[in-house]
Amino acid sequence: MNATPPLLPRAQSSLRSPVVVWPWPIALGLLTSFGLASALLGQHGVWLVLSWIALSIPLVVTLACLVQAGRRAPLSKGGLS
């Protein structure tokens, strides 16, 4: 799937160098697990709040990535296919 030459210099740089894949998914997974457990085991005010915060972070990160993607190439959706 990487056979076609990249079309933009920015894309080129990000395609060439290998990046570390797992830190982000693992961090989000741990946050989710913590959020699920802290409300279940903690039951009290602060644990509930921590649970809400921990479970919101994956959603916030997703939203941030989407917003960033939207800003980067607002007009070219599907244009070069």
Binding site: S14, V21, C65, Q68, S76
Partner: peptide
């Protein structure tokens, strides 16, 4: 599969400037 596809992509990349399929 995620581990394989994302080898050269920073987390959260959404390539909207290329084929719609990639997006």
């Amino acid at each position: 599969l995620y581990g394989r596809y994302m080898k050269r992509l920073p987390f959260g990349t959404v390539r909207r400037d290329r084929a719609a399929r990639l997006a």
